[in-house]
């Protein structure tokens, strides 16, 4: 197979390269080094500055392939899919990894169909098999109950998406040099059958749980919406974001963007504190990459305790008010 090189799908928002791109570059670097090939960042955007494009090189890319067009001002599936399919056909990378963001999860499956490529979703581990140069992909399945190891031996490129924020980027090296290739594509690749008519920014406080350093989460054990407010209060005191289990979201105590777990979001904060969450496997799968976990639950057999650095078997209605009060005093709030 004459496919060569590791590609990562970069993402930008209004001209600013997104952190997930740098995270992917770190993943890609390990693979490119093992294969002894170039690491390429492909980016579609509109009026992305040369400095922004260079930043991809500082974070590890050997080359940047960039397509500039007004159609990439907002995300639309058609031009993304058609342009990337065309670029894959031209450059023939052996591996393409994308972030499992709303963009990556939308375009990667369609590109995989068009390129007749194998695609593995939400990988937690990526490695190269010695000898065969195959990409070894590891991902959780069946609600996080099992880990599956997957490869696509006979198809190229080998495609994978990786959970955003499941690893840190490398430290940028501003002296690193590389090449930026400005690609021009024919108009037929840039057409879109959908059109953005508006964008509504999400301004809700504490909703961006994926980027938060501190996440305070509550579950069914809160028993009422009123009690769930203790979680919100604690988050506010610590300048953290509010997370919720699926049950708490289903009960309407928190909105869907706050949902943590396989059917919600993966979080990797420095500190994850949760109360009243028993720890269904699908929830645990969403917090595994948190650096520190404190869990409060009255059930001594709660599964959440398996994952906790500090497990407190106590009644949250007695424990949380005390914690809130002491923290307020400690922080002069």
């Amino acid at each position: 197979m004459d496919y060569k090189g590791v590609w990562i799908l970069g993402e930008q928002d209004r001209g600013k390269v997104q952190t997930v791109s740098y995270e992917l570059l770190k993943r890609g670097k390990t693979l490119a080094e093992k294969l002894n090939v170039d690491l390429v960042a492909v980016l579609l955007g509109y009026q992305v500055s040369p400095a922004e494009l260079e930043s991809l090189i500082h974070y590890g890319a050997d080359k940047v392939v960039y397509v500039d067009d007004p159609v990439f001002g907002n995300f639309l599936p058609d031009p993304y899919i058609n342009s990337l399919t065309k670029l894959i056909d031209k450059y023939k990378p052996e591996i393409l990894i994308a972030s499992a963001t709303s963009t990556g999860r939308t375009v990667a499956p369609a590109i995989a169909i068009k390129c007749h490529a194998g695609l593995t979703a939400d990988c937690t581990g990526l490695d190269i098999e010695e000898g065969s140069r195959n990409l070894i992909q590891t991902r959780p399945a069946i609600g996080g109950n099992i880990l599956a190891t997957i490869k696509s031996p006979d198809h190229r490129p080998q495609m994978a998406t990786v959970r955003p924020h499941s690893n840190q980027p490398m430290d940028p090296d501003p002296t690193r040099k590389g090449e930026v290739i400005y690609e021009k594509l024919e108009a037929k690749f840039l057409k879109s059958r959908s059109r953005q008519v508006a964008f509504i920014e999400m301004k809700e406080e504490g909703a961006n749980i994926q980027d938060a350093e501190i996440v305070i989460a509550g579950g069914k054990g809160c028993k009422t919406e009123e009690n769930f407010k203790m979680i919100t209060e604690l988050a506010k005191i610590l300048n953290g974001a509010v997370g919720a289990s699926r049950e708490a979201v289903d009960l309407g105590w928190a909105k869907y963007p706050h949902q943590v777990g396989l059917s919600g979001k993966t979080v990797s904060p420095s500190m994850y504190l949760c109360a009243g969450i028993s720890g269904a496997v699908q929830h645990l799968a969403g917090i595994k990459t948190a650096q520190n976990i404190v869990a409060i639950n009255s059930d001594p057999d709660a599964q959440i305790f398996q994952l906790a650095d500090i497990a407190v078997e106590a009644d949250m209605f007695e424990f949380l008010p005390m914690l809130i009060e002491k923290l307020k005093a400690r922080l002069n709030k």
Partner: peptide
């Protein structure tokens, strides 16, 4: 999407 809602 991550930072809001897109109307299409």
């Amino acid at each position: 999407v991550e930072n809001g809602y897109q109307l299409l």
